[in-house]
Design a protein around this nucleic acid. Structure first.
Length: 219
DNA sequence: GACCAGGCACATC
DNA sequence: GATGTGCATGGT
């Protein structure tokens, strides 16, 4: 049964890696900025960009909304795609400013489903970024799917290889208890095992999920 | 030097 | 509706 297999995977991962303490960010806003900057990008590059923003004392919605776009682009350059990500950050801030007075606390009481739709309407925020913001910044019980989640699920025969984002999300959300802490840890653990053992060219040797049925990686 | 990394929007068929 | 492409830096 899928539910039991998903729990087994969780316990194997947690037993090996322990708590991951996600999201790696000190404030709600830092988490949101990180969620946008990490799109298709290595986290270490994102850390450099966020460090630049901290040093420049710009890591608040108001300051980032007001800063010159060219300056912002220069600061986030290490995160890659810096021109498009500048626009995406500005798009988010424009939405926050116009719809919620620029105050993140005004998002707290908005139902998760409605908030997700609104976030998806912001150009540059897709399903993964929206769900990351909902779960990690706003503590809503939604499951975050990313490239690692998909790879692990497919390689372990939990879902068809052509499953889209929403189907992958449903796999986890409909078979697991909707709990913020649990979803937080589970996704973080999937990224951890993905980075160490489930990359396209990584080998399965030593993977804590090896005892489960899977497609052996030969790269 | 090629490949990869915690996506997304847009063009084209 | 499916498939392809641009966006860009930095580590392995």
């Amino acid at each position: 049964m899928t539910e039991n297999r998903l729990m087994e995977i969780y316990y194997l991962l947690f037993g090996r890696f322990g708590p991951q303490h996600w999201w790696p960010g000190e404030t709600q806003f830092e988490i949101i900025v990180g969620a946008i900057l990490t799109q298709n990008t290595n986290w270490t590059n994102v850390e450099k960009a966020i460090s630049n923003l901290k040093i420049a004392d710009l890591l608040t919605p108001k300051k980032l909304d007001e800063v010159d776009a060219a300056k912002l682009a220069e600061l986030i350059r290490p995160a890659g795609y810096f021109n498009i990500k500048t626009k995406r950050l500005k798009n988010f801030l424009a939405w926050l400013s116009s719809q919620y007075g620029g105050q993140l606390e005004n998002l707290e009481d908005v139902p998760a489903g409605r908030l997700r739709e609104e976030l998806l309407s912001v150009k540059g925020i897709g399903p993964e970024t929206a769900d990351s913001i909902l779960l990690y910044a706003l503590n809503k019980p939604v499951f975050v799917v990313d490239a690692y989640t998909a790879r692990v699920a497919i390689r372990h025969h939990l879902i068809d290889s052509d499953a889209d984002y929403e189907r992958l999300k449903e796999l986890f959300q409909s078979n697991l208890p909707a709990d913020v802490r649990f979803f937080n840890e589970y996704h973080a653990l999937l990224v951890r095992v993905g980075k160490e053992f489930c990359r396209p060219t990584a080998r399965c040797e030593g993977c804590p999920l090896n005892k489960l049925p899977h497609i052996p990686q030969t790269g």
